[in-house]
Design a protein around this nucleic acid. Structure first.
Length: 578
DNA sequence: GCCGTTTTCGGCCCGACTGTTTTCAGTCG
């Protein structure tokens, strides 16, 4: 047994560093791409790479071949990697800091290092201020100024922006752009359209015959701090808050290929272009081009996939996680849709920290077309929420009955609970009390930083309690500020498979927990899922689409989600759980 | 360095924009 148990993330970081150093060294690009691809693949890998290593199956991981498998093996066996140690002596690792500066790539970084012996950001800034960069070959006064602007921009730069923050910003920008005369369509592409939990830059796409007025409007918006590029088809800006955006303008009859291209992911696009080549076509954002040079234009994105001979793949699933092959094989899942959701099972009322009464929440759920709502107020130990005391459970039941009577059979109201999984691993209500509720969520809110084994055992205790129906927002993470508990998800899912409990995908965009990768793993193990907003007010019921998007990113089908079941089926499932 | 229903060798997506270049290199997505 070794203690060099590098996580998937750790390994991805190591191979990313190798790729960067090799790039500065001037290694052939395809070797670098191979390391990058392996890094991405390891980072996204659903299971534990360590376990795969123990089973001797490393090369089953996409992008991992003989050479990289041997390096992972060395890392797990010895704790370090001789190849990287040697490379670091040759190329100072601090050089990679400079790659973070916008518009600086491996060639320039190598140039600064070799010509001026600059090895880190501080040295680069000093040299730029002294005017030493502009005399280098291929450099000039403008390029030097750009380096300084880039360093400054780096200090301002936000980390990836949470989806929930980027979403309204994009909506606002698109609203302004749509007002420009001649704009036929304006939509978000990129990771925003794919509904990744965080977004790097905003990618905006416009259909218009003439681009100049759109570009002028975009680059002169009041919130724009500086314009980093402006052309006929593409412009890029940086906003005051550090966020960056780029805008493409394409003619309406080419909008399909353009939107497909701008939506990514990069890996997905590479797959499609490979597929196009096999069909004797070259695919770009402008069109398909036949070998004789003639073009096939696509006004709509569906046509792009049609010409490639595969079904349209929803943006959420375009992460190069096997979706193109699945499409070719005809085994893409029937991705769940928002309209499949019939019930909201995790909400709060004034009986704990919710903002409105049970009647108001139920009415709001009914108005959104739901057939069932469960009110799941907190248990008492979570102090700040003023949880529901045991002596009040009966009174709450009476209020639910009154609300039910007021709303008739337009919606079914369930009395649920979000019971706390306490730090000692016990639940916050005794079993006979839990048995009274129609549906029980068990959630972690406290002592999330316990060691892996301890917090995992707490979770497993809750999963094994027959009164618990759903594990709420399993890891307890908050995006971007709080990491989730260090759960051993393999062990958690194994226990869930045994007990038949459902796992939640919290639709609340600060949670999205389970995440896409864990959701996919869960359904592959046959674990039912439940998507809920955890709404504390009626307006938050509208966050459901974020949860559905996360499920789609995890290849989840409607039948695997208990919220899509007709009330009779849901109630019968709950009854059978005891 | 990875990969394979045209390949175990020879490919590996393709174009926009900028700045430095008199025709292209570097960076980005």
């Amino acid at each position: 047994m070794t203690q060099n148990k590098f996580s998937n993330q750790d390994l991805a970081g190591i191979f990313q560093t190798i790729a960067n150093l090799l790039e500065i060294k001037g290694e052939v690009i395809y070797k670098i791409l191979a390391y990058r691809k392996a890094a991405d693949s390891l980072r996204d890998y659903g299971g534990s790479v360590y376990d795969v290593w123990q089973e001797g199956n490393l090369t089953d991981i996409p992008g991992v071949g003989k050479a990289i498998a041997e390096k992972i093996d060395e890392l797990y066996k010895t704790g370090h990697l001789e190849f990287l140690d040697k490379l670091s002596q040759e190329i100072p690792p601090s050089l990679t800091e400079m790659l973070e500066v916008p518009d600086l790539g491996p060639k320039k970084v190598a140039l600064f290092w070799k010509e001026l012996d600059i090895t880190d950001l501080a040295g680069l800034e000093a040299a730029a201020r002294k005017g030493e960069l502009q005399n280098l070959p291929g450099m000039g006064a403008k390029s030097e100024a750009k380096v300084l602007a880039g360093i400054e921009s780096l200090s301002r730069r936000t980390e990836r922006t949470p989806l929930w923050k980027a979403w309204p910003v994009a909506e606002d920008l698109l609203g302004k752009i749509k007002q420009v005369p001649g704009v036929e369509r304006a939509v978000a592409g990129g990771s925003l359209r794919r509904m990744r939990e965080t977004v790097g830059d905003l990618d905006l796409l416009v259909a218009a015959e003439n681009s100049s007025q759109v570009m002028d409007t975009f680059t002169s918006l009041p919130e724009v701090l500086r314009v980093t590029g402006k052309g006929k088809t593409k412009s890029s800006v940086e906003f005051n808050n550090g966020l960056r955006a780029q805008l493409w303008v394409h003619p309406p009859d080419r909008f399909g290929t353009a939107l497909q291209y701008a939506s990514g992911s990069k890996g997905h696009n590479v797959r499609l272009r490979e597929l196009a080549l096999k069909r004797g076509l070259s695919l770009s954002e402008h069109a398909f081009t036949r070998q004789d040079g003639s073009e096939i234009l696509c006004a709509d994105e569906e046509q792009v996939y049609e010409i490639l001979g595969i079904p349209w793949i929803p943006p959420e699933a375009r992460e190069d996680r096997g979706e193109v092959q699945a499409a070719l094989d005809g085994v893409l899942p029937e991705f769940i849709e928002l309209s499949d959701i019939l019930s909201e099972l995790h909400t709060h009322s004034t009986w704990s920290d919710g903002k409105v009464s049970i009647l108001d929440m139920a009415r709001a759920a009914r108005d959104r077309g739901y057939k069932v709502i469960a009110v799941t107020d907190h248990s008492p130990s979570l102090g700040i929420t003023q949880g529901l005391k045991i002596k009040d459970i009966r009174s709450q039941r009476e209020e639910i009955a009154a609300a039910q009577e007021a709303l008739g059979d337009s919606i079914l109201i369930l009395q649920g609970s979000e019971v706390e999984i306490k730090a000692d691993g016990s639940l916050d209500y005794p079993d006979q009390v839990l048995a009274e509720f129609d549906i029980v969520f068990a959630s972690l809110h406290v002592s999330l930083r316990q060691p892996r084994e301890q917090v995992t055992q707490r979770m497993i205790n809750a999963i094994q309690n027959p009164n618990v129906d759903v594990i709420g927002h399993p890891t307890g993470r908050l995006i971007p500020d709080r990491e989730g508990a260090d759960l051993d998800m393999e062990a958690v899912f194994a226990a869930a498979t045994q007990s038949g409990v459902a796992m939640e995908i919290s639709a609340h965009p600060e949670r999205l927990d389970l995440n896409d990768i864990h959701a996919r793993q869960a359904i592959e193990m046959g674990i039912p899922l439940s998507i809920n907003t955890d709404a504390h007010s009626p307006g938050e019921l509208d966050l459901m689409h974020f949860g559905v998007a996360t499920a789609r990113r995890g290849w989840v089908e409607a039948r695997q989600v208990i919220n899509t079941w007709e009330p009779e089926k849901l109630l019968s499932w709950l009854r059978n759980r005891g």
